[in-house]
């Protein structure tokens, strides 16, 4: 495989100029009504780490930011993800995450509508790096699941 295919310009651009990088300012989240959700994860084998913060309003991801350390693939993937999911309904976000996971794990194919995610076609050919690409997505999925569990608990109280 050509290295160009792996380190696509889109990926390098997101790595060098990550979008939605940083933390959501505390004042933005009116604690209790619209709590700030946090989720983090690490790839224990290589030490890549991703921290995500997001705000949900009317069942939509109103805002999302990330920080982290790690390789080009893991950090670019996080940046691209935040752009794609911001403003989407939680259901749509979950669907996209699950679809991207299935694609990277070779159970589904890339389709043209995936936009910047098409840049990961090269990564999919390198089994050793698929985990890097999926880290941020797993972290967000975990965060959304925890958020939804809390909602259920709240309703049940």
């Amino acid at each position: 495989m050509e290295l160009k295919e792996l380190y696509k310009e889109v990926i390098l651009d997101h790595y060098q100029n990550p979008r939605n990088y940083g933390e959501i300012p505390y004042a933005y989240s009116s604690e209790g009504i619209n709590p700030l959700c946090k989720s983090e994860g690490e790839n224990p084998i290589c030490g890549d780490a991703i921290y995500i913060q997001f705000l949900v309003k009317d069942n939509r991801l109103e805002d999302i930011r990330f920080t982290g350390t790690g390789c080009t693939i893991s950090q670019a993937s996080a940046s691209i993800m935040t752009e794609l999911v911001k403003g989407k309904s939680l259901e749509d976000v979950k669907t996209l995450i699950i679809r991207f996971k299935r694609i990277m794990e070779g159970e589904e194919d890339f389709t043209e509508d995936l936009g910047d995610l098409l840049a990961f076609e090269g990564v999919r050919k390198l089994p050793a790096r698929i985990k890097c690409a999926l880290l941020a997505w797993e972290v967000l999925l975990e965060g959304i699941k925890k958020y939804l569990e809390r909602q259920v608990e709240r309703v049940n109280v």
Binding site: L6, Y7, S74
Partner: peptide, 8 residues
Amino acid sequence: HPHDVATI
């Protein structure tokens, strides 16, 4: 990142 070095 070391990962990128190793892949390249």
